[in-house]
């Protein structure tokens, strides 16, 4: 319990630190964000001079940072806006609320990530287990080689290759967008099928370059567990093979991979930026890039904070639940999930 409180405290601290840091960036950046925003608003006004007071208010409402307020007051305003989930308004999208943009794009990123993670783990775990059972066979050796080879390819290179070959040369999959144009979002076969179809190449880029190491880890774990005394004793006790495979070998070999799962979530959140740009996939990473290109500070900060938030929450959940899966960690101050 102590440990749980400590972990939660750490998570909250991380979130607070990131938020504060982003406040500092906006406020203190030389030629700061506020100035950029002000000059940009000035430009948009096209010549007609906006009074300084009005300009200040506009900047304040959009950035959640009032450039003229004393720092502690500005910080308070900014933080309380964040706590209420108000990230300000986007410049890139003509003053649209950043919240709305995030609400529109985050689910797509999560969808893509879940698809990649599930696919990757399903393939890696079953493959690794089969390789372990057939240790030393041609199947095992070939897969080990292929796994290592594919793992050495960066996911964005794989993405480009997929776009070239599966997107253009043999157009099996669409290479851009989230769902087919002309299909209305809803619970229809066209929409859901289309969404999966569009997510296929980005997800494959992660899966193909990521499953290898995971499968090898699973293989190693399984081989180790297969050699454990408790597996031998379980066989002698006459337990059904199925139970031994799942409850004994499977569970004990998979548990250490839980950490990999958490790490891969963090990795994918980061990787989603590049991948979403490559596939013109309007997820949160894509919008973050838009924010950067258009110097759209609220959009950039909003997406950045949400991504950070996502990673921190994922790690926190992982940490809090690991003890449920592995009884040895239950009370553990001594050992952690990573």
């Amino acid at each position: 319990m102590n440990w749980f409180i400590k972990r939660t405290g750490q998570a909250i601290f991380t979130l607070w630190a990131v938020a504060t840091l982003s406040f500092g960036l906006i406020r203190l950046m030389p030629g700061g964000a506020a100035d950029i925003m002000a000059s940009r608003l000035q430009q948009q006004a096209q010549g007609s001079n906006i009074p300084r007071e009005q300009l200040r208010e506009m900047v304040a409402s959009q950035l959640n940072v009032d450039p003229d307020a004393p720092i502690h007051e500005a910080y308070y305003q900014y933080m309380s806006a964040l706590v209420q989930g108000d990230f300000g308004n986007s410049i890139r999208y003509g003053g649209q609320e950043v919240n709305a943009i995030i609400a529109d794009t985050l689910p797509w990123t999560l969808f893509l990530m879940s698809l990649s993670t599930l696919g990757m783990f399903a393939i890696a775990l079953s493959l690794g287990a089969i390789m372990a059972y057939k240790e030393g066979s041609t199947f095992d050796l070939a897969n080990t080689g292929v796994g290592i080879l594919l793992s050495s390819i960066p996911y964005y290179v794989a993405a480009v290759v997929f776009i070239a070959f599966l997107g253009y040369r043999t157009p099996l999959f669409p290479v851009r967008g989230r769902y087919p144009s002309g299909v209305d979002p809803g619970f229809t076969v066209e929409f859901i099928g289309g969404a999966f179809h569009h997510a296929m190449l980005p997800a494959l880029s992660f899966i193909v370059t990521g499953y290898g190491l995971l499968a090898l880890t699973m293989r190693g774990n399984s081989i180790q567990v297969l050699g454990e005394d408790y597996v031998r004793v379980a066989r002698l006790r006459g337990l059904p093979d199925r139970r031994i495979a799942l409850r004994y070998v499977g569970r004990n070999a998979v548990l250490p991979l839980y950490t990999s799962l958490l790490i891969s979530i963090g990795f994918m959140f980061g990787g989603s930026i590049i991948l979403e740009i490559l596939f013109q996939y309007r997820g949160i990473g894509f919008e973050m890039n838009e924010g950067i290109i258009y110097r759209d500070m609220p959009l950039m900060m909003g997406t950045f904070l949400v991504i950070t938030f996502g990673v921190v929450i994922a790690l926190w959940i992982g940490d809090a639940t690991y003890g449920k899966l592995d009884p040895r960690i239950k009370s553990g101050d001594d050992s952690e999930a990573y």
Partner: peptide
């Protein structure tokens, strides 16, 4: 049979 190595004869993730 009771094996050598009782310390590891139980599945660590099962009571």
């Amino acid at each position: 049979m009771v094996f050598q190595g009782a310390m590891s004869s139980f599945n660590p993730t099962m009571n």
